[in-house]
Design a protein around this nucleic acid. Structure first.
Lengths: 247, 1266
DNA sequence: GCTATATTTACTGATATAAGTAATAGATAATCC
DNA sequence: AGATTATCTACCGACAATATCAGTAAATATGCT
């Protein structure tokens, strides 16, 4: 049983372990279920945390029970990506999604989690830096708790669109929006006028020179609204990656 | 051993000659390995040019074109000549080009610059005369200078005074010509003269000079040239090749080109007085050229109208395409429909409009660019690093052509690279750049209307090419033809990847900017119809395993349109069969298509391959390779009309049929499960399905596009005799160059092709036709008699298939190869129902395939009787089937395991079919590993469906071990040889040339850049090179190529610079060597067979190890196949290879550090005498150390640091003496193992012992090839 | 006028990216202390 | 010296990651006598 497998959770339900969990309405109180995880120090860990946040707007996975809080221990590296504010060089897709979906707060003072060897296993092979995965072992750790917002800026069913726009635009994370928009779809530059529309209050408008990395959550929300209203928006948002063919 | 009576044995002299040829003293092409990237020096430039130099040459070439910027060209030219860089690329034709350009500048410019340019020309000519720069005047040179003298010399109407250079009068030029053995007749017929008047003038001038110099023979020759120019064209022109050589008998007797050893034409002699000048027929330059061409090429040149048709075919695609687009657009305009929606749905109309707009845009942008680059050029200092200018390149073609190329290339790339409705940017940019380059080169090829040789140099009736004399003659003729052809062609330089990408990006960027479409959709909310003008293309990115991938995508409106109508417009002439016999291969890059530059070998990204080929070609060692290719290229084909009709019907129906995928998917798109919004698992499954559905759809579409090409090509060539020009891959295997429709293609392509000529079957041929049919139907494991019987039993089905292919029982569609089966059914029925079946003339190719050809060669090499029997090298009553045998071996082992209650044995018992092991057995020749074998078997098990899916993987693991072990047991000889080859390659790849060793130790590490790589690693530049018995040098290309990002208008693209040398990939070199070596052998066998078939008058074609000829000729071909195989393997191929390694790598050293790996030890342990081998290795080491003359072998090289030489010597000396006594101590040996070098040749393992099997036994094996 | 220094520009190399390590995980050569 | 760890994983025939940023080298501007 692995925390990575969706089956694990449905099996837990089947076995009745979660029987005493009371479902709460989304705008109700936090359910009596709390998800705790120590992310594996590997690619899988990053994958998992990203997936979990993306379940929030769809209210899938444990969020069927309501706004289940998550407490997660993770490496400094992943944390910095997850919590990077606008303009930060590490600002990324994950940061925007987590900011949009949940109130993420540090749970433990990172200093309490150091030194690494006192609290964690496995201990790094040697203190020196190795490569890739093993170099991350021994990094300082962070812990946070995320409570999904009652008010979701990502509407149910819109996760795909957010995913799509974020992915495409973060490719050109430091390129002015008016140029970067082009890679969204043919004619997508026309979205720019929605972002600078005179009817929008001045402070809410998004400057065409702003780059994806600098966009605030409000900016993204505006952008996605425009995208959603755009009749020419692309259709297949799910299958967008190139596949390498075999035989 | 004797052939069975029905196999005619060929004349024994041929056999002796071939055996003799294969045992001739070896001639290797040996060149130094490339130097490490950080050690490249000037001397290195001689062999390997760097990219900046290549760019400079290309810019210069482009500047010269149409006198675009002659001063700049000259500037670069002088720089290059001065620095001696890339001088192997500075062809004499380039010098001539400059002379020509100077001449034209002198004639064109109104200003007073005449004298300047003329002076430049004479200076350059004088330089050429000295021969200092490795180039010598050619006929073209003399012609240009003569023309210049006539136009501007003191006797001309407009004399120009030249003071700064020595000017040569006709006498001086003539003297030089004679000195260089250049025939004056060729000079006066040279392409430099554009009109008959000019040529006449030249003849007069030279004649006068000859008279003054008292050279009657020259006077005669020129008189002859004059009269040749007045000959009427030959009325027999169109008679096919059967009448060889020349037309007018008296002329051929009168004129004899005397050829020197190197193939230059020195003189025309005539026994008779010069023919009387015929005043009635005016002198015609073209006529003279054609006649001379025949004399020089010693063969008929192609008739004018055939050439014209081919020329039209090769040059007109773009013209045809543009006409079609235009026509379509006009059609819509004429209909007078302002209706935009109609307008917008037609792809061709769109393309036309893009083309029109793009043309204008290119012109404008190019003008900007030119100004910009001029400014940059003025600002930039000389010598500073600069990107090559683009405008000269873009000026090479007219904007309309650039525009069309861009549009067509982009449309052509639709769906490539696994991108939905789009393409990878990098590929698109390169493709466009390459297309522009190719088109320019083609234009240059077409520029001069030169005679094209027709007949094959290795014509039947010629001297036997395997004899010394015959070979030399072949060589001499080829060199002559080559010189003639090359001197008449424009020289063009190759562009670097960088230039291609930049050109591509310029054009694509323009296109994306201008191309728009009207896109209409229904607003998803309001349902209202919306129309908007949108870009037709857009640039975007996709991700592939977290890696960014730049893509160019089509607007959905365009994509939708494209998925419906496949475009035939994007076909390129280089992708089509030829209407005339391909130009014989005159050298490594001259042959095949008449008006497109084609290479005799397909290179990987490896300059080394090119270099070796060029050297071998220039040294005349490739005669038989070229001759063999010429045989394959000159096999005539035709489209099988009956099959074509059926294909067309099926195609137009759009249905799935006999491997043709349906036009619209026959499976519905997977539905979104309702629970996917909250069930992640369901979502995943859905996405998976969706993805695979899309993939199938894309695959179907690309299949249909490819079939569409085939059908279109077949349609275009219905009723024609066509030819497929061939070249070889780097191992020497031959392939037809046209990629779409050729006999090497899929079943459909093969079914659509027939030999160009039909030949009577005869009794044996009829039998073979039946056997062929059985083979195609999949009934190929039985004896010949049984196969014939099979056909007799299915005659009804066969007749039904032939008569009513679609309406009847469709028996043929169930065959393994349905389309070929249909073709054969039709032929067989036609034969059997004809009044005299045995006299029936049949054009269908009948195949003889080697059974596991790779293993056959291994068995022959190792004299392995057990293996030989398995692959039908030994005679037997019925064919032996390896796959069945191996399956049985595995099954037996499973039965044994069963007794021990092995769980997988229980699961798999009785399920080991032939099919399960087939792929693995086949791929052992390619060195398949355990992992690969397991995957293959897993797939097969899953296919069977009677093994639980979740157990497949482990079961496959269990089976793979057994299968591989069984194969190893069965083909012991093969395994040993494989290991030997692998070990040799591994050692070679780790070896370092001696001079590098000393040098790299001596010179301090360049700029103490922290290198974490040990020096010896960086010095590993040696690829495995060997020479096939036919003389073809083979260079394994595997290196660790470094790619870099380069900036373009759209994005950066990640490309490599093939000119930057990089270290070899030792693992790949080693693992690929066994298959490559075997393939180089089967290629040799095929070539020998092709040559022999030609000399015996058989039509021949091949698909690597499948040899084709007419049914009636099969017996004869079978004899030849066996003869050539025996000849090949009687020459002790492996010893020759070992010997070649010893010579080629004589002074290469292997660092012992790289032999420490377990594989090396294991390899030595695995051998028959494991401990002895180890001991031997140790002995060698101590020998090395003790030999005083082997200084460098005992150099200590620390693995981590680059030590100074002094340090080395100090360290070495004490060690050198010490080990003598303690050589036996294991620790000592091991200690000395680290950080030392041994001679590569000393540690090459001994050849595996050869078994008892005598390869001559195949004479009696019916099923060897069958 | 001319070199020394400051500033700008060009170039190179490193790094992050997405996300069920593409559908899969065992052997082996290479690399670290 | 010996364990650990990246790298394959069937040959050929048709190829191929990229935007951004930090650090450095080179070029230009500024400063100084």
């Amino acid at each position: 049983m692995s925390g990575h497998s969706w089956d694990t959770y449905s099996q837990m339900e089947e076995t009745g372990i979660l029987k005493d969990v009371e479902s709460q309405p989304w705008d109700g109180p936090v359910p009596n279920l709390h998800f705790v995880s120590h992310l594996p120090v590997s690619v899988k860990g990053e994958q998992l945390v990203a997936q979990l946040f993306r379940c929030i707007p769809e209210r899938s996975w444990l969020f069927q029970y309501g706004r289940v809080p998550m407490s997660i221990i993770l490496t400094d590296y992943v944390w910095s990506r997850l919590s990077a504010p606008p303009r930060d060089s590490r600002r990324c897709k994950l940061a925007v999604i987590s900011e949009a979906t949940a109130d993420v707060k540090p749970a433990i003072d990172p200093a309490e989690l150091a030194p690494y060897a006192d609290y964690f296993h496995p201990v790094p092979v040697v203190a020196g830096v190795h490569k890739s995965v093993s170099k991350r072992i021994g990094q300082p750790m962070h812990a946070f708790t995320a409570i999904p917002y009652e008010e979701q800026v990502i509407q149910r069913g819109d996760t795909e669109k957010w995913d799509f726009c974020l992915r495409r635009l973060f490719v050109l994370k430091n390129t002015p929006l008016k140029a970067a928009l082009n890679s969204l779809a043919p004619g997508a530059t026309s979205l720019m006028k929605d972002l600078t529309d005179a009817r929008i209050p001045m402070e809410e408008r998004v400057k065409p020179t702003k780059s994806p990395r600098d966009l605030t959550l409000a900016d993204w929300t505006l952008l996605l609204r425009a995208f959603n209203n755009w009749p020419f928006r692309p259709e297949d948002l799910m299958i967008t990656d190139a596949f390498k063919e075999e035989d | 051993m004797e052939y069975p009576p029905f196999m005619p044995s060929s004349s024994s002299s041929i056999h002796n000659d071939m055996h003799g040829f294969l045992r001739r003293p070896a001639q290797y092409t040996i060149l130094p390995a490339p130097l490490p990237a950080d050690a490249a020096d000037e001397a290195h430039q001689h062999l390997f040019t760097d990219s900046p130099t290549q760019d400079r040459i290309a810019v210069m070439d482009a500047c010269l074109h149409d006198l675009h910027d002659v001063p700049r060209a000259k500037e670069i030219f002088e720089l290059l000549r001065e620095s001696m860089r890339g001088d192997q690329l500075l062809d004499v034709r380039l010098y001539n080009h400059f002379l020509q350009a100077f001449y034209e500048m002198a004639t064109r410019k109104e200003s007073s610059n005449h004298a300047h340019w003329l002076e430049e020309a004479w200076i350059l000519y004088n330089e050429m005369e000295t021969g200092r720069e490795g180039v010598q005047p050619t006929a073209n040179t003399y012609a240009i200078m003569l023309r210049m003298w006539l136009r501007f010399g003191p006797d001309s109407e407009s004399p120009v005074q030249i003071s700064a250079a020595k000017v040569h009068d006709p006498m001086s030029l003539l003297r030089s010509m004679i000195g260089r053995a250049v025939a004056p007749a060729l000079v006066v017929a040279d392409r430099a003269f554009t009109t008959s008047e000019e040529a006449t003038e030249a003849i007069k001038a030279l004649s006068r000079a000859a008279v003054q110099m008292s050279l009657p023979s020259i006077v005669n020759e020129l008189g002859l040239a004059d009269s040749l120019g007045r000959q009427v064209d030959d009325p027999l022109e169109d008679v096919p090749e059967a009448i060889p050589v020349m037309k007018t008998k008296d002329l051929s007797a009168a004129v004899e080109a005397r050829r020197n050893e190197d193939g230059t034409v020195s003189q025309f002699t005539t026994d008779e007085p010069a023919p009387r000048l015929d005043g009635d027929i005016p002198f015609n330059l073209e006529t003279l050229r054609r006649h001379l061409g025949q004399v020089i090429l010693a063969r008929r040149v192609l008739s004018e109208d055939l050439v014209l048709r081919q020329r039209l075919l090769e040059e007109s695609v773009y013209n045809v395409a543009v006409e079609r687009l235009k026509h379509q657009a006009e059609l819509f305009d004429q209909l007078g429909l302002p209706n935009k929606s109609l307008h917008s749905t037609d792809l061709r109309t769109w393309m036309w409009h893009w083309h029109v707009k793009l043309q204008a845009r290119i012109e404008a942008e190019l003008a900007n660019l030119e100004v910009e680059e001029r400014v940059i050029a003025r600002l930039k200092r000389k010598g500073s690093k600069e990107d090559p200018q683009l405008s000269p390149f873009l000026k090479l073609l007219k904007p309309e052509k650039l525009s069309l190329i861009t549009v067509l290339e982009l449309m052509h790339l639709h769906g490539s690279g696994g991108v939905q409705d789009g393409m990878k940017t990098a590929r698109a940019l390169l493709a466009v750049g390459r297309a522009v380059e190719g088109e320019h080169k083609a234009e240059m090829c077409k520029k001069n209307n030169i005679s094209v040789p027709n007949a094959n140099p290795a014509r039947s009736g010629d001297q036997n090419v395997f004899t010394n004399l015959g070979y030399r003659d072949l060589h001499a003729r080829r060199v002559t033809a080559r010189k003639y052809m090359e001197d008449s062609e424009e020289w063009t330089s190759d562009w670097s990847q960088l230039v291609r990408v930049k050109i591509g990006s310029f054009l694509v960027d323009c296109l994306m900017d201008v191309a728009t479409v009207q896109r209409s959709i229904k607003d998803p909310r309001t349902g209202e119809k919306l129309t908007e003008e949108q870009p037709a293309f857009f640039h975007s990115y996709e991700y592939q395993r977290g890696h960014k991938l730049g893509v160019i995508k089509f607007n959905p409106a365009v994509a939708e349109r494209m998925s419906k109508e496949p475009l035939a417009e994007t076909l390129h002439p280089r992708h089509l069969p030829m209407l005339v016999k391909p130009k014989p291969w005159l050298s490594y890059n001259n042959g095949g298509y008449l008006y497109n530059r084609t290479w005799a070998m397909r290179f990987k990204e490896s300059r080394e391959q090119e270099l070796y080929l060029r050297h071998a070609s220039d040294a005349g060692r490739l005669e038989l390779v070229f001759a063999g290719l010429d045989v394959l290229s000159s096999t005539p084909w035709q489209i099988n009309r009956s099959v074509f009709d059926v294909v067309l019907k099926v195609w137009n129906s759009g249905e799935r049929f006999a491997k043709i995928p349906p036009a619209v998917p026959d499976e519905p798109e997977p539905e979104r499960p309702p629970n996917m919004d909250f069930d992640n698992k369901a979502k995943m499954v859905y996405l998976e399905r969706q993805k695979s559905w899309m993939q199938t759809k894309a695959a179907n579409h690309s299949d249909r596009c490819s079939i569409n090409y085939k059908v279109e090509i077949a349609r275009a060539f219905l009723g024609d005799t066509i030819y497929l020009p061939h070249n070889v891959d780097f191992r020497g295997r031959a392939y037809p160059i046209p990629p779409h429709l050729s006999h090497i293609g899929d079943d459909l392509s093969r079914g659509l092709l027939l030999f160009g000529e039909a030949k009577p079957l005869g009794a044996r041929g009829l039998r073979w036709l039946k056997i062929h049919l059985a083979n195609l139907a999949g009934y190929d494991k039985a004896s010949f008699d049984e196969r014939v019987e099979f056909v007799h039993e299915h005659l009804d089905d066969i007749y039904d298939s032939a008569e009513r292919p679609l309406e009847g029982g469709r028996w043929w569609t169930k065959a393994d190869d349905p389309w070929q089966c249909l073709a054969t059914c039709i032929e067989l029925k036609a034969a059997l129902t004809s009044p005299e079946p045995e006299a029936y003339e049949c054009a269908l190719p009948v195949h003889q395939d080697g059974t596991c050809n790779g293993l056959q060669h291994y068995a022959a090499l190792g004299g392995d009787a057990v293996g030989a029997a398995q692959v039908n090298l030994a005679a037997a009553d019925r064919p032996s089937d390896v796959y069945t045998y191996v399956a049985k071996m595995v099954e037996d082992q499973i039965q044994r395991d069963l007794k021990e209650d092995h769980p997988f044995a229980k699961l798999l018992a009785g399920k080991i079919s032939r099919k399960v092991v087939k792929q693995t057995v086949m791929t052992t020749v390619y060195g398949v590993t355990f992992v690969g074998a397991r995957d293959q078997i897993e797939r097969q098990l899953k296919d069977r469906g009677d093994v639980p899916i979740e157990q497949c993987w482990l079961a496959a693991s269990y089976l793979a071990k057994k299968v591989l072990a069984s194969i190893g047991d069965l083909f012991k000889g093969a395994k040993e040889i494989q290991t030997w080859l692998n070990t040799c390659a591994r050692l070679v790849a780790k070896a370092i040339p001696q001079d590098r060793l000393v040098q790299s130790m001596t010179e301090p590490p360049p700029k103490a850049k922290r290198s974490n790589q040990p020096r010896w690693k960086k010095e590993q530049m040696t690829s495995v090179v060997w020479t096939t018995p036919l003389g073809l040098p083979i260079v394994q290309p595997y290196r660790s190529i470094k790619r870099k990002q380069v900036m373009t208008a759209l994005q950066t693209v990640f490309i490599s610079d093939p000119n930057i040398p990089s270290t070899v990939n030792a693992q790949k070199q080693a693992s690929a060597f066994p298959p490559n070596f075997i393939h180089s052998l089967d290629a040799t066998h095929m070539m020998l067979t092709a040559l022999e078939c030609r000399s015996q008058g058989l039509t021949f074609a091949s698909v690597h190890d499948s040899y084709w000829t007419h049914a009636g000729s099969i017996d004869q071909m079978n004899a030849i196949i066996r003869d050539t195989f025996i000849a090949l393997h009687s020459s002790d191929v492996l010893s020759a290879l070992a010997q070649e390694f010893r010579e080629r790598y004589a002074d290469y050293k292997v660092p012992l550090v790289s032999l420490q790996g377990p594989a090396m030890k294991k390899l030595n342990l695995e051998g028959a005498a494991a401990p002895e081998d180890i001991q031997a290795l140790k002995e060698i080491v101590s020998d090395e150390v003790e030999k005083p003359e082997e200084e460098e072998a005992s150099l200590v090289l620390d693995a981590e640091d680059d030590l100074e030489l002094e340090e080395l010597e100090e360290e070495v000396k004490p060690k050198k003496r010490k080990p003598k006594k303690s050589a036996k101590s294991k620790e000592d040996v091991e200690q000395r193992l680290a950080g030392k070098f041994v001679n590569l040749v000393d540690i090459l393992p001994a050849l595996p012992e050869k078994g008892k099997f005598d390869v001559k036994a195949i004479k009696e094996s019916q099923y060897f090839f069958s």
